[in-house]
Design a protein around this nucleic acid. Structure first.
Lengths: 358, 358
DNA sequence: TTGAAAGCGCTAACAG
DNA sequence: CTGTTAGCGCTTTCAA
């Protein structure tokens, strides 16, 4: 039905090898011949057959991204970086959105089919241990983003450092009772951010108050969602009224901060008037809501992940890499720094790395 | 390097044809043989080679989705529906995110490669005329979502009707000076929603006031973005102070409403206190912001699009279909219906379809 | 029910 | 520089 290289070869009066060379601009073809062949290509509106090419060349030029897909804005923004870089490199990107944990394995299984994809990107999810051997055996390149595994390349952000910066900022603004609204401690980012929060308190000599810390239980998106933030804020409400009240909150993600903000508003608590807030991620909406937050270079992380994956594809046995970005503090409205500088200001403490257990 | 059906055949003592039949559970294989072969399959951890299979069977089991990707929440939610259905049907989904208009053609060109994908989904974008003939020639199935073209299957929402409902709701709440914040009139949804707005005014005998209508110019996302909404709101500010002031606004998308809300807040205008607001889409954030809005069944539209595409793949010459959903009014905070019912209430007007030109 | 053989359309190694 | 040839791994007749 379609035009094949045989048709082209016949029409141009050359062999199919030559046609193939022209198509893949192989150097050893005379200018005249190439011209003639490409002419025929245009005239016959030839379209190469993707899969035939892939079968013969053993390269698929396709990668898969496995991502938690329940409208997770962080992941979406990483995905954009991935897509942009893939597009730039002319690589097809297969999207596997995970709604149910079981799907992870299903997608991995698919990716493992020989010749299906050249590599897999794993975003914001724990990599299932049962698959690490398989991936290695079948030599499937894997890169993790916002996740970590000692046997795969990972791209992440300094969560502990970021959480420390956030907490210090609040301390610097004069706050002494700082609450923490966390996601599920099952996840690494949640653990690390809690460590950072705690470390910042410790280094300043502030007590770690158990009641000030709310973690999400097992739930949708591991607690990185709006409702989780709102619930936590509601739980925190009494703490605003007690003597020596909580006057600031560090929320481990913007999306939770949005929910917390909402809950606070409904309870008549003003932010930053009554309580200051700093969160984490800097998703696009953070700007809209005026969140002071720790920015993660999501787009850049996505782009880098694709580069890292292609590198890995080219060198399957190279050493495992770990790339770490440093989050930046973006000051907007919720921390109150812009509004009034009435509070006492502490000098930033030195970078002492306590390692409190969580 | 990998295990092939030849290995399986040798190991099981059968021909490759039989192996292939077992793998594709073709009926004409004896239970015993099948058992034996499948045993070997498991023992050797055989993985079929995707591309070989695709080449031989001429089916790719892959579709592509071309979507405007600059964090457009509407599209993302549609995409989720697409992904869910594709996953359910075991179809691979290639994601083509468009950042620059030129990329559309690039992606279409790729999709047109023989055997690349079985079909293409086109979300929220005008389909380039230069490609309609090509798609038909190469018999590439195409389905449009939130867009329309007479020669392709389309899935959309009754924009005019929705806009009328929204505007009528505001009228019913007693408002008489209702502004319109629109996106770029280059797009079909913008045109249709403006028609609906106008029709609702006309049927009630309210004048169409030119100064009350703000359309976005040519810009990012055709004006369907936050900044556009904020700008429009700022332009509208004087109208709130004049005699016979504007007391309500219909905004053609939630994302613009978010921007408008922000701008209003900064200008000291309370919503719904000073001005009521109804918007369109019901993206996930609408709930968070308390937007009264016209709900589009985005997820459902995405799912249906995939079904429609597979149907089309099975019957390339069937009649072109157009599926239309009706948007639902979701009442939350911004319209003020919950707050006070102080205003006069008009009875809903009959469904007269004026067709004002835009 | 099964095996053998002929492709699917292309790449790449090998002669010339 | 170019033509020929041998696969890539699988599906699908066609006989048996």
């Amino acid at each position: 039905m379609g035009v094949t290289i045989y048709d082209l070869a016949r029409e141009a009066g050359v062999g199919i090898g030559t046609v193939s060379r022209c198509l893949n601009n192989h150097p050893s073809v005379s200018a005249r011949t190439r011209e003639r062949v490409l002419d025929v290509v245009r005239r016959l509106e030839y379209q190469p057959h993707t899969h035939a090419r892939r079968l013969a060349s053993r390269r698929t030029n396709t990668i898969a991204a496995i991502i938690p897909f329940f409208t997770n804005y962080f992941s979406i923004q990483v995905l954009q970086g991935v897509q942009d870089k893939a597009s730039e490199l002319d690589i097809d990107l297969i999207l596997y959105g995970v709604n149910h944990p079981a799907e992870v394995e299903e997608y991995l299984r698919r990716s493992l089919q020989r010749g299906h994809v050249d590599g897999v990107l794993f975003i914001s999810m724990r990599f299932p241990d049962s698959y690490v051997t398989k991936c290695h055996q079948l030599r499937l390149p894997v890169v993790l983003i916002d996740a970590y595994h000692s046997e795969f390349d990972s791209i992440r952000v300094e969560n502990k450092e970021g959480a420390m910066t956030a907490t210090r900022h609040l301390i610097g603004l004069g706050h002494r009772q700082i609450a923490l609204i966390n996601a599920s401690l099952e996840t690494l980012p949640a653990q690390e951010r809690q460590q950072g929060y705690r470390a910042a308190l410790l280094e300043t000599g502030l007590p770690y108050v158990r009641e000030n810390v709310i973690a999400a239980g097992a739930m949708r998106q591991d607690g990185f969602n709006r409702e989780s933030g709102a619930m936590a804020m509601r739980q925190l409400l009494p703490a605003f009224g007690r003597p020596d009240p909580v006057t600031a909150v560090f929320v481990v993600s913007d999306i939770q901060a949005l929910g917390a903000l909402d809950a606070a508003r409904k309870a008549g608590i003003r932010v930053p008037g009554d309580v200051a807030m700093v969160s984490f991620d800097d998703i696009e909406l953070a700007q809209h809501a005026g969140l002071t937050t720790m920015r993660q270079p999501m787009h850049q992380m996505g782009m880098l992940a694709v580069e890292c994956l292609t590198t890995r594809m080219g060198n399957p046995d190279g050493p495992v890499t770990l790339t770490t970005f440093h989050p930046d503090l973006v000051i907007r409205d919720t921390c109150g720094a812009h509004a009034s500088r009435a509070g006492r200001t502490f000098a930033p403490a030195p970078d002492v790395a306590h390692e409190p257990t969580v």
